[in-house]
Amino acid sequence: HQVSSLPAALPGCKSNKEACLHWVAEGLQTYMVATKHLESQSADNSLPANIRYLCGLLISQIKQQMKKPEKVRVLTSSEEEQLLKDIDRLDAFSKRMTALSILDQFRAFLSDSVRKIRQKEKAKQKRNG
């Protein structure tokens, strides 16, 4: 029940910090959309909304650190719709499994992303003395 359209953290972060931040900012937007599916599956549907709010703040912080934040692509509304439609077609059991998978994939994405950014920032600090 892995959602193939959700991004993994590392592939886009092999090169420089800018590329890494770009990947994370775009990835976060995709996960923000995916959390909409969690609202129907969650016992407390205010949590997915809070997650989206914090993701928005994080994307702003990331963009502030970027040289070219305008290059971060925003998902179109039809792309958003497609992502949610793919999930909506599933039966109830698969929807639940997909929700679990989104949570797992999102957690891994965040942990990997912050670890990678930490490596880049520490390396830069070291270079700058």
Partner: peptide, 21 residues
């Protein structure tokens, strides 16, 4: 530093606290 932002941990906490029906 961006990696020191508390938002990363806050989002992970919410993910961990999210209980599915």
């Amino acid at each position: 530093l961006l990696c020191d932002s508390s938002i990363w941990g806050a989002i992970i906490s919410l993910i961990d606290g999210l209980k599915l029906q």
